[in-house]
Design a protein around this nucleic acid. Structure first.
Lengths: 120, 120, 120, 120
DNA sequence: GTGGTCTAGACCACC
DNA sequence: GTGGTCTAGACCACA
């Protein structure tokens, strides 16, 4: 797996996990990949995966059975939706629109880019 | 001046300079603040400003007269537009649209958010 | 290690690294000395070594594994050859030949100097 | 006039002066351009030209008549030849041949490059 | 005054 | 341990 620089690896791992839960690839009370498994798969230090899981646990998205592994919590999807949407609307969108203005991209152009990119 | 964490200071300085050029606050062949001047103003180490300016110079956005200072290059605006738009369309927009899909935000909702945020 | 004056230290460090790669003292995917290690060895500030390595990384000669170190990239040798030869032929040779003309050294004399110096 | 970076401006000015003497564009006891004249012509600070002339004077290549200007000394050409050739053979050529070896350029290739570049 | 390089030493994220 | 960023402060060349 390749990581974007400018964002920490454990955050990007968290993103992938959240994405898998939102798309229901991982459903409620499913066991997620073990720390070592996932670490081996994406060629990353187990500590880094552990860190990502811990944060998700703090947020109530995963829960942990000692000695068994991490699982998707009941309200995981709801929590993610709420957290992510709030960040998206309050932080990311204003930056997006500001940037569009600077780059002289209007909403119609955004729409056409949306259609073009959606096809892929 | 205050800086966002999660992004390096020298990148944020570069962003501000580029923004000032795009908005024509600084026009072509204008002298920009000297390294020491800007460093004092935004309360940052001169080396950090130097790093930002050097990168802008490598990108052809600024140029330099020995012993005099840094200046906005002729093609600065064009270069910035090109670089930024490329990153925007190829990297940021796909992430945006992916996130919209995950969060179940459709394009009409985006439009209404756009109108709401544009008023501010 | 001693450095020539008239050229920056970080450039000279870069030269040494490139030379070690060309002579295959350091082969592809070898880990190069860590920033701190090399800095201590040649009695130079780590920042200076960092600067040299960063430039080599931008040129695609080195790559980096987070938290592990810098490594010789696959195409390092090719890239160095290409970059150095271009500078050599387009910039250095014309100056050389111009100087020979001024100093009234013809090509035969150059050949005899070449043979003499090659023996050492 | 454009200057190479990596070498100080006053050295490059000195190079031009020495070149003009070697090519007999400026002959013995000719008056050379005044400091201000030359500075204006090549768009450089008079101090910088002054510095170049002073060094040439120290080397016995120029001499100075107070209030009148700088002149080419009698032995200028001889001195330049001797100084430059010594540097060329003892310092520059060994570096050149070392670089050729690294870049795997043999003497025959150098000859063909010489012929090609001589035509221009 | 200007940019440019370098040092010493600190702190952070990551492995 | 690794790279990466940043600070404080120095010195140099050049205008």
């Amino acid at each position: 797996m390749e990581f974007r620089k400018g964002q920490t690896i454990y955050e990007q791992i968290g993103d992938v996990v959240r994405e898998n839960i939102l798309t229901e690839k991982w459903k409620r009370n499913d066991k997620v990949s073990s720390v070592r498994e996932l670490a081996a798969e994406i060629e990353v230090n187990p500590n880094t995966v552990m860190r990502a899981y811990s944060i998700l646990q703090e947020n109530g998205i995963l829960y942990n059975k000692r000695g068994i592994g991490f699982f998707v919590s009941d309200k995981a999807k709801t929590i993610i939706h709420k957290l992510d949407k709030e960040i998206f609307v309050k932080q990311e969108l204003p930056l997006l629109f500001k940037k569009m203005k600077l780059l002289e991209i209007d909403f119609d152009e955004l729409r056409s880019l949306y259609k073009k990119l959606s096809k892929k």
